[in-house]
Amino acid sequence: MASPQTTQRLLRELKEYAASPNDALLHLGPVTDNDLLDWEAVLKGVKDSPYEGGLWALRIRIPETYPLTPPSIRFTTRICHPNIHFETGEICLTLLTSEHWSPVYTLSTTLTAVQQLLTDPRPDSPLNLDVANLLRNGDVAGWESLVRYFTMEERWNMN
């Protein structure tokens, strides 16, 4: 069971998101009505980037100690990005590490950061070596077309 302070905080986030949604997201909320510690989100691709038009589902596990400790977030839709594992969906983002996490981040702002990561790849700390190597070798065109392909190919849809 989540602690009262964690529950309160998550309910506030939920209400705030409902009243004031995030442009980066198509959806954010608990997966079921019964578990407030298990959320899902659908992220939108950034306009004017190779990810434009993409939709990816993410799964968010929230620890009992949230917001003192970071949520664990991974893509469940496959995405082609040097810092995101193609198969497991694991994301390499500093603010998701306990060292750099801050309790002032919300799930919504954190997902905004994930969206920003899409347009700001760091091939030097790769989780997807193949994609990272394209970038490291300066093959931006090759990278972009690969990204575009998978963005459309894997695009999340409701069913």
């Binding site: 603010l95 950061a113 990561l117 760091r122 700390s125 989780l127």
Partner: peptide, 27 residues
């Protein structure tokens, strides 16, 4: 109402993960 700016310094991928992808396997 509440949108704390994310310090750009923390938007980057984790440095720790560099070259250690296997150990960062899925939970």
């Amino acid at each position: 109402p509440e949108s704390p700016r994310l310090p750009s310094a923390f938007l980057g991928p984790a440095e720790v993960a560099s070259n250690s992808a296997p150990s960062l396997g899925p939970s």
